[in-house]
């Protein structure tokens, strides 16, 4: 048996909420891939904890998306029954884990953005989003601290860990421009005080990342060509594989519970 994909309504608020939910779910799934494979037991637990934080954020946002769409869909429908082109997450969060340095640098680049984002969103005129942001901000603050401390130790560690951290930074940098892009329709949400203008976070994000990168004795890459398209559903080749893993069971056995 096979369950087909759903098509969701295309309204600015729904698109916005799903984009944020997809960021959290996809990054949470990526971190969950470390479960049982962490470089040491302590970090295995740390990465799994953060995966659960992110999946929890995704659940809250998908549930809210269900209210916004009012089409009778629950969180599982959005997570399991949308095709890759319906996913609106940033390209950064779907990039493969690579080695530990790459996972940590990806977490640093994302957390340095999303933590002040959630903090700003706590003042949203949308009370549900404000409440979700208040909970998520405490989690992302810790993710940022964890990734920062590890980036410093990897960068300022051995020649091998320094080289790996620098390579991760160089390879992931082209995905950071998308953090500050604004999909069509989001301007109206920002004007209404519902959403946050990501451009206002560019300077604080850069300051945070620069501070950590300098402590880590790494070199900040030059801003060159920036990849984008995730928010519009144009993803890298990696997301489809991730979703086939994540969605397989609900597609093959619709509504399965255990």
């Amino acid at each position: 048996m096979y369950t087909g994909s759903i098509t969701v309504a295309d309204t600015p608020l729904l698109r916005y909420v799903l984009g944020r939910a997809d960021d959290a779910l996809v990054l949470g799934h990526r971190l969950s891939e470390w479960c049982g494979h962490g470089p040491l037991l302590e970090e295995d637990m740390a990465l799994s904890n953060m995966a659960l934080d992110l999946i929890g954020q995704a659940r809250a946002l998908y549930t809210y998306a269900g209210e916004v769409e009012a089409a009778g869909r629950d969180e599982d429908a959005y997570a399991y029954l949308r095709d890759v082109t319906s996913y609106a997450n940033l390209l950064l969060v779907e990039q493969p884990n690579g080695d530990f340095a790459r996972t940590i640098v990806r977490q640093l680049l994302f957390s340095a953005f999303i933590d002040p984002y959630w903090r700003a969103l706590m003042a949203s005129t949308d009370p549900t989003l404000a409440a979700i942001a208040a909970k998520a901000e405490k989690e992302s603050a810790y993710h940022l601290r964890h990734a920062s401390e590890w980036t410093v130790r990897l960068g300022d560690g051995t020649a091998e860990s320094h080289a790996r951290a620098q390579r991760a930074l160089d390879e992931l940098w082209p995905f950071t421009g998308e953090l500050f892009t604004m999909p069509a329709g989001e301007r109206a949400l920002i004007d209404a005080g519902i959403a946050i203008d990501p451009e206002t976070l560019r300077a604080p994000w850069r300051a945070t990342v620069t501070r950590v990168v300098e402590r880590a004795t790494l070199t900040l890459p030059a801003d060159g060509w920036m990849q984008r398209g995730g928010r519009e559903g144009r993803h890298s080749e990696h997301l489809g594989h991730l979703l086939s893993d994540l969605q397989y069971l609900q597609r093959a056995f619709p509504g399965a519970t255990w």
């Binding site: 970090e43 637990m45 590890w150």
Partner: peptide
Amino acid sequence: ADATLAVQAARDL
């Protein structure tokens, strides 16, 4: 590896 990471790991574990 050090005290800072130990506090973080203690929180996580």
